[in-house]
Simulated scan of single mutants.
Amino acid sequence: MKELPRRILGVVIVLVGVIALIFIMLRIIPGDPVSVLLNEHVSQANIDRLTQNMGLDKSLPEQFLTYLLGVFRGDLGRSYTMQQPVLSLILQAFPYTVRLTLLAIAFAWTIGIVSGVISAMYNEKFLDYLFRGTALLGISVPVFMVALFLQYMFYFRLSLLPLVYDGSFVSLILPAIALGWNSAGSVARLTRSSLMEQLGATYIDTARAKGLVYKKAVVFHALKNAILPVITMMALQLAEMLSGAVITESVFSISGLGKLALTALQTRDMPLLQGTVLFTAFLIAVGGILADIIGTILNPKLRLG
């Protein structure tokens, strides 16, 4: 806990660096946001007026300083294309991402932990190979491939679930599985490896010698110690998912943070894209701090250190 102020200061420095990086990248790539907003037959006077209104006539250092000061005041600018405050647009889209993320993380953690435990309990047997292979498949297959496969199977072939998000809970099932599939594989692999270390400890042999059933020794003793690094990784996964699932939200037409960022990129809406990237970086940084805090609370050794 004594490291918390230093970590917060580090987060602020990282966020300033993220702002500078995205600010520079958006201005060196080809294209002009003014030309995107106006058609090719508009007069030069209108182009100059819009450029001035958007503040693009100022030097890059002036633009960066103006934006940075606005961020510290809680002002992320105004969207060029939607003509609304960027922070307002982000807050409108974020609840959709939260609902998707919570369902995806519930799927990932449940499947991942159960698979990891079963794999460790049946080490070097058929179930172990099966779950290890499935976990490796989950990590290796891209999200868009999983999403398209789920749509093909459960909508076109079986007609069980909606193709895209329509506001209902049922329509969130497929995108949640697609988003959580990769995380489930990571959780399963880490759970298995951490549990295998604990199963070789002497206290497990002692518990077995006292007559405790093997499965109970695994679940009630070994898993209690093996789950600590898994929980830390799960906190980071939650922050990463909350930061916006661009591909998943695009494939399933969910108006969340990821789709908002993709729209901003396609239209060269610099304030909106800067705002979504900054908000994403903030969530990931906060997730890292929360992961450290959770690990410190759950692990007495870290508290003593």
Rank of each mutant, 00 (worst) to 15 (best):
P5A: 05
P5G: 06
V16A: 14
G17D: 06
G17H: 10
V18S: 07
I22T: 14
F23L: 14
H41M: 14
V42L: 14
A45F: 09
A45M: 11
A45G: 12
N46S: 10
D48M: 14
R49I: 15
F72W: 01
G74F: 11
G77A: 07
Y80L: 07
Q83E: 14
T97I: 05
T97F: 03
L103W: 11
F107D: 03
A108C: 13
A108D: 03
W109P: 00
G112C: 09
G112A: 04
V117H: 04
A120V: 01
N123A: 07
E124G: 03
D128F: 06
F131H: 06
G133E: 10
A135R: 02
P142A: 08
M145Y: 11
A147D: 03
L148Q: 08
F156M: 00
F156A: 00
L160Y: 06
V170L: 11
A176T: 02
L179I: 08
N182S: 14
N182P: 00
S194M: 10
D205I: 02
R208W: 04
R208N: 09
A209F: 10
V213R: 15
N225Y: 09
L228T: 09
L228A: 08
V230M: 10
T232F: 08
E240D: 10
S243V: 02
V246C: 05
A261T: 10
Q266T: 09
M270T: 05
L273Y: 10
Q274M: 15
F279K: 04
T280V: 03
F282P: 01
F282E: 04
I284R: 05
G288W: 07
D292A: 13
I294E: 05
G295D: 06
T296R: 03
L304Q: 14
L304C: 05
